[in-house]
Computed example of a mutant assay.
Amino acid sequence: MQVQLLSESDSRLLTQLGLVVSTQDYQQTTYGAFVALVTSASTGYPFEVALTGGFSGRVVLADYITRYSFSHCEMAFVEAVPGQIVNQVLGKIEAILRL
């Protein structure tokens, strides 16, 4: 998933990779999605989940989740992520919520 955001301060178009972690039902009901940030700056942080395939070398930050409204940003599908990786991300989110 690639998220394009329009910066309110200077009207620049910013592009950010992210992993959608909300359900399709939620997205259709609220016209938005919860997205976990994807970055290439891996530090070994315990809430990072390594990606594979075309995005190897990048990590999902399970503790960096933002809600994006479909009316305020443009989202485009980039590549499917294996279910194992999604489950790892969701497991780390669940662990955070239990703290």
Rank of each mutant, 00 (worst) to 15 (best):
M1H: 04
Q2M: 10
V3H: 09
L5G: 02
L6P: 07
E8N: 04
S9K: 05
D10Q: 00
D10S: 03
S11D: 05
S11R: 10
R12E: 03
R12D: 02
L13G: 11
L13C: 02
T15E: 13
T15Q: 11
T15A: 13
Q16A: 02
Q16M: 14
G18R: 07
G18I: 07
G18S: 00
G18L: 00
L19R: 07
L19D: 04
L19E: 03
L19A: 06
V20G: 00
V21I: 00
V21Y: 00
V21K: 08
V21L: 06
S22C: 10
S22K: 12
S22T: 10
S22R: 13
T23F: 03
T23M: 06
T23Y: 07
D25V: 00
D25C: 04
D25T: 02
Y31Q: 14
Y31F: 09
A33N: 04
A33K: 12
F34P: 11
F34E: 13
F34W: 09
F34V: 00
V35N: 12
V35T: 13
L37S: 04
L37N: 14
L37Y: 09
L37A: 01
V38A: 03
T39N: 07
A41F: 14
S42D: 11
S42W: 02
S42L: 05
T43C: 05
T43Q: 07
T43M: 12
G44Y: 01
Y45R: 08
F47L: 13
F47K: 15
F47Y: 08
E48V: 15
V49F: 03
T52F: 04
G53P: 14
G53R: 12
G54Y: 06
F55I: 13
F55E: 14
F55L: 15
G57Y: 02
G57N: 12
R58H: 04
R58Y: 03
R58P: 05
V59Y: 01
L61G: 11
D63W: 13
D63I: 04
D63C: 14
D63F: 11
T66C: 05
Y68C: 03
S69V: 04
F70L: 08
S71A: 01
C73D: 00
C73K: 13
M75D: 09
A76T: 11
A76F: 04
A76N: 13
F77C: 06
F77K: 09
F77A: 01
F77D: 06
V78Y: 08
V78Q: 10
E79Q: 13
A80S: 09
A80P: 04
A80D: 13
A80W: 08
A80T: 02
V81E: 09
G83E: 03
Q84D: 09
Q84P: 07
I85G: 08
I85H: 00
N87Y: 12
Q88N: 14
Q88G: 12
L90Y: 02
L90A: 06
L90V: 00
L90I: 02
G91A: 07
G91H: 15
K92W: 00
K92H: 11
I93V: 04
A95N: 12
I96A: 09
I96P: 06
L97S: 06
R98G: 12
L99E: 09
L99I: 02
L99W: 04
